[in-house]
Amino acid sequence: MEINEMLFLAIALTTVLSALIVALSKKIIYSAFALLLTLIGFAGLFIYLSADFLSMAQIMIYVGGILILILFGVLMTQRIYDPSQITAHNSIWVSLAGGIAMAAITGAVVWLNPWGKTLAKDFEYSTSRIGSELLTKYLLPFEVISVLLLAVLIGAVYLGRSREVHK
């Protein structure tokens, strides 16, 4: 087994295990930190798939942005009147049944299709291609999504603004 593949295995295991911690941990703050590991693990996997730009974007957007937002959310909602609520969960059996059903479906799809026969290519840099595609073929979605982000920005500010207490 090459060092390359060993590294891959390590990353894959980290990703999967920390995802399980996210799901199973009793305290939400542990989940948040486990999520950090999962996201970084995904960034590592992207590198194996010639997605250098996406890997960096993953770290910047997910780790630098979304995760921080989630952590803020966790910290700002800690002061809950009923402490038992923090760790409350739904029935684990129902949830597990749902998860396993999903795993069965996806597993079956992976298993039943001959994916393995597709070709494998060497690593190539994709950043420049993404850049040129973004401004040519994907220009319209790009513009549309920028409008969407603007709307989100305004919406988030609107929702997040402090209102006068009317009670």
């Binding site: 990703t15 999967v16 995802a19 399980l20 996210v22 799901a23 199973l24 999962t38 969960h89 739904n90 684990i92 129902v94 949830s95 597990l96 749902g98 998860g99 396993i100 999903m102 795993a103 996806t106 597993g107 799809v109 992976v110």
Partner: peptide
């Protein structure tokens, strides 16, 4: 697939 199912499980749990 594993992470996807874990996600579904998390949402339900």
């Amino acid at each position: 697939a594993i992470v996807f199912s874990t996600g579904i499980f998390t949402i339900l749990y």
